[in-house]
């Protein structure tokens, strides 16, 4: 079987399209590369969805934590503490458990025990907490001059936040947020390791990598392939975030643009 046929058969196997049965003997390098790559679809799906939805909640939580009203501040603080203070591993376990009990009471929760929804929710909450803390830190570092200038221009309330505070916060938080995005994509590899079961051998990249490691009894081929895919993914994430970063900083004079770079390190999760 040529490698092209393998791609046709297994390229979308992780979504249930193509060959129904996984290869069972005479494993080729091509099969491993294709199937592990197919599993990456799920890692990207989890990562992108959690990142996009988590961004909105993170902003809300960060603003909430910066409020003086304890009714808003306390829940935000607790949310961040709970999700930043416990291992993702344990969060997956409890989420699966909770969704199971909810499911037995309300049919609405039926899809929640599937990884595509349940794990996405956990990752969404997790990244919202981590990014929320990063944004909160950035919110506190927004230069006083910026907000004073906004006041002077007659900006207030929502407009001031939308036009002045928020963009500055993002600019300050961006390098650390990039790191968070990298961590989030890495965390997607944990989905099928703990808690959520794989249905009909549709799993993420790590699922297929461990399938091959188990079948060939040789961990030194599939896991480095997996590592290679993740390095590529990390590079893509870094470059996309780099483009956004340049956009966020485009109004600054050239020599100041490099300034926030050190924050990349300091605010890393």
């Amino acid at each position: 079987m040529s490698c092209w046929e393998t791609i046709a058969d297994y390229g979308l196997r992780s979504l249930g399209i193509g060959e129904r049965l996984l290869p069972r003997s005479d494993f080729t390098l091509c099969q491993q590369v294709v199937l592990i790559g197919s599993g990456m679809i799920w890692n990207i799906y989890f990562g992108v969805l959690a990142l996009v939805t988590g961004f909105a909640l993170a902003t809300a939580v960060a603003v909430g934590k910066a409020q003086s009203n304890p009714l808003i501040r306390k829940p935000s603080e607790w949310f961040i503490f709970l999700f930043r203070g416990s291992p993702l591993f344990i969060q997956f376990f409890f989420a699966y458990f909770a969704f199971l009990s909810l499911k037995s009471a309300y049919p609405f929760f039926d899809p929640f025990t599937s990884a595509w929804l349940g794990a996405t929710i956990v990752l969404f909450l997790n990244t919202a907490a981590y990014s929320g803390e990063i944004f909160y830190g950035a919110l506190l570092s927004v230069p006083k001059g910026d907000t004073e200038a906004a006041d002077a221009y007659g900006f207030s309330g929502w407009r001031k936040f939308r036009r002045i505070t928020w963009p500055t916060m993002l600019r300050l938080a961006w390098p650390a947020y990039t790191n968070e995005a990298i961590f989030l994509f890495h965390a997607t590899a944990l989905v099928f390791v703990s808690g959520f079961p794989a249905r009909q051998q549709k799993g993420d990249a790590l699922y297929y990598a461990s399938y091959f490691a188990d079948k060939t009894f040789n961990p030194f081929v599939p896991y480095p392939i997996l590592a290679g895919y993740f390095i590529l993914l990390t590079l893509v994430v870094i470059s996309i975030f780099g483009v956004v970063n340049r956009r966020l900083n485009r109004h600054l004079p050239q020599e100041r643009r490099t300034r926030p770079r050190f924050r990349a390190a300091t605010l890393m999760r």
Binding site: A189, P219, T234, L235
Partner: peptide, 19 residues
């Protein structure tokens, strides 16, 4: 720095110790 940061720790742990 680049390579180790680019790989999820779990993937690293699964083969690195034996290696």
């Amino acid at each position: 720095i680049a390579i180790v940061r680019g790989v999820p720790d779990i993937a690293f742990f699964l083969f690195f110790v034996i290696a």
